[in-house]
Amino acid sequence: MVTPDLSVSLGGLKVKNPVLSASGTFGYGLEYMPFYDISRLGAVVVKGLSLAPTPGNPPGRIVETAAGMLNAIGLQNIGVERFVGDVVPRLEDVGATFVANIYGKTMEEYEAVALRLSEVPSLGAIEVNASCPNVREGGMAFGATPGGIAALTGRVRRSTGKPLWVKLSPNVTDIAGIARAAEGAGADAVSLINTIVGMAVDHRTRRPQLSNVTGGLSGPAIKPVALRMTWEAAKAIKIPVIGIGGIQSAADALEFLLVGASAVQVGTANFRNPRACVDILEGMEAFFREERIAALADYRGGLRMENSP
């Protein structure tokens, strides 16, 4: 059988397969080169970039929880200028398709980062972080309401011609409404979910376990929530949905495609298996071959709802 066609268009960015890295878990991509050729991935989504370098939160940034982890890194990053100057040429050298995740303290900052990145011809897309729970100005203020999402998406939309993805927060009541707001304001795709706000305390020391007190929950623990929200968003909008949340295996990734995601991003799994993204990609290819499915499009969104379960 011929190799299955896994290519898909993600709001103007055509990728060769639907396995992407999730921002914040993949550094700037190059850190994974000792483990495999990152140009094999549909795209590398880099750690969130701000206008100026950001120091992040004080130590006490991560804690492991049942089948997951909480983080409150605080968006530590090298800033957009160093990214463009130092990282982009190396990503170009390795031939990776790459997407920049961006955030700002204000609408103006989002706009400025997007403007600067729009000057980078090799950049595949811009993903707007409208959902970081760990810094006051990490986008949650914009991401929590349809009005906020529409305003932010509209501002960035007007400042860039790049494919524009908006990364949504799960910490909302109605994800469908939020997704519709992003679509209405000009997003080319949405990605979801970002981490779920959580907390861990030590019953002996009587202290919170994170310096930031609360953090973002990720890992297999959040997968059912992520899957449900991906399904709801995919039903609500016409632009592509990129599913994220707790994906550890090819089977997990396929479930997101089944409920309507056009692609997936793999996050926390990269921490425990640096080859997680390619392992998932290879597992997905093997599945399509076994099932004699010729193209991703023949499988995607194919959730059978009659006589469920």
Binding site: G24, T25, F26, R61, M69, N71, I73, Q76, T268, F271
Partner: peptide
């Protein structure tokens, strides 16, 4: 979390 510099959790 990772051990190789990407998660920025161990600072």
């Amino acid at each position: 979390a990772c051990g190789f510099g990407v998660c920025w959790g161990c600072v």
